[in-house]
Design a protein around this nucleic acid. Sequence first.
DNA 1: AAACGACAGATGTCTGACATCTGACAAAGC
DNA 2: GCTTTGTCAGATGTCAGACATCTGTCGTTT
Lengths: 233, 233
Amino acid sequence: MARKSLVGVVADELLDRIISGEFPPGSSVPGELELSARHDVSRMTVREAMKTLEAQRILSVERGRGTFVNPLNRWSSLEAVLRAASEGQNGPAAAVQLIELRRMLETGACELAAQRITDAELEGLRDCVADMRKAHQGNDVASFVAADLAFHDQILQASENVFVAVLFEPLHRVLEQGRTETSKVPDIQEHAIGHHQNIYEALAARDPQQARNAMDAHMLQTLSDLRSYVLET
Amino acid sequence: MARKSLVGVVADELLDRIISGEFPPGSSVPGELELSARHDVSRMTVREAMKTLEAQRILSVERGRGTFVNPLNRWSSLEAVLRAASEGQNGPAAAVQLIELRRMLETGACELAAQRITDAELEGLRDCVADMRKAHQGNDVASFVAADLAFHDQILQASENVFVAVLFEPLHRVLEQGRTETSKVPDIQEHAIGHHQNIYEALAARDPQQARNAMDAHMLQTLSDLRSYVLET
DNA sequence: AAACGACAGATGTCTGACATCTGACAAAGC
DNA sequence: GCTTTGTCAGATGTCAGACATCTGTCGTTT
């Protein structure tokens, strides 16, 4: 059952303690010896756990002095920040902020893609929309979500901006589950197909402004879907 | 001179070898024993170096099988991706892509800020512009850059979106040096002051669309400045 | 009062050992 | 012949103890 290594367990628990506020930013975490005693593991295991948190800029290790918690805005792990931001009753607010972020990246990428997309990539997008239609008629939620994701991936790739793709990847993972939920509703599926069709046409026309607007409409629709979904459940 | 720990040195060199193409994505890197022999360090040191790269999703460690290089789009470290993307003659292209990314985030944050900014934050922005004017007249480049950065930071904070701030932080570090260079030119300083003034006024009017457009104009100007700067040097 | 030195506590590194997982190959059983 | 099983090499996971080195502090010395 517990498939994670000991290092992962220790790192997770330490991060939990940090997020819970036990070690606020700027303060120091217990020494390696103390943690190894607490978790009943060797010092090396604790060190490797610390190293993973240090690599994500969650901790700063200073030789001879100790290990300190960085302020949240220096963390480089979206997932960790998400965990921290979702504490207490902030879950919905964090979800909205994630969509806002996604909106920035996707509309921007779509604008760039309109200037750079190739004919082959356009064809791929058309196929994705066709797949979504087919899945919608056949009530195949899994295929629908897959085609949806493929569509957005294709645009990201067509934007030819590596950094956007890199920043978007963790978002992809985080938003994946929620997407499957909302995509179950037939009405939402139909809206999505329409928006994707519009985006495709704008990209085919290679009109950056129109492409951005089409994607923006899609994002706002998604945000609206999320709001009603979060409210009713 | 060499203030970095051994772990950092080993991690850096291994990352260099990966970026140079010696270990392409999907392939495996040498085992811990082989690396410890090559760098003349203990196996534990190699392991900690690997852990840092694994935490940045550059490597995937699989027990009993080996350690493998992830494809570039799974890396979570903007700096590492930047190093990889700047290889060979791709430096300028990477710089342009960074500005494009910055444009997405800053225009998006500015649009959000227009809906949420407080009076106190507006006053802070006005002070920043005033400081820029003062530094411009006094030929104080350092103060000018500082006020410029503070202005953008304030907007980021006013957007009230933690995730945008988190994604922007590494960009901040990367773009910092280039900013100091371009800010030396008096003409560019004057342009920047005008744009910042426009942004401030749009935010004061709490008009999201106008704020986005003002920031977008600023970003396009910056991109144009960068292009002419890169071309002539 | 300032400079020095000893000291405790923290992280950095090394050595060697054993545990456990994976993949491959060979031997045993049907 | 074909499947099953045992064994083995090689890889990562974890442990224990030791020593090195840096930092801040607190007396002691000058």
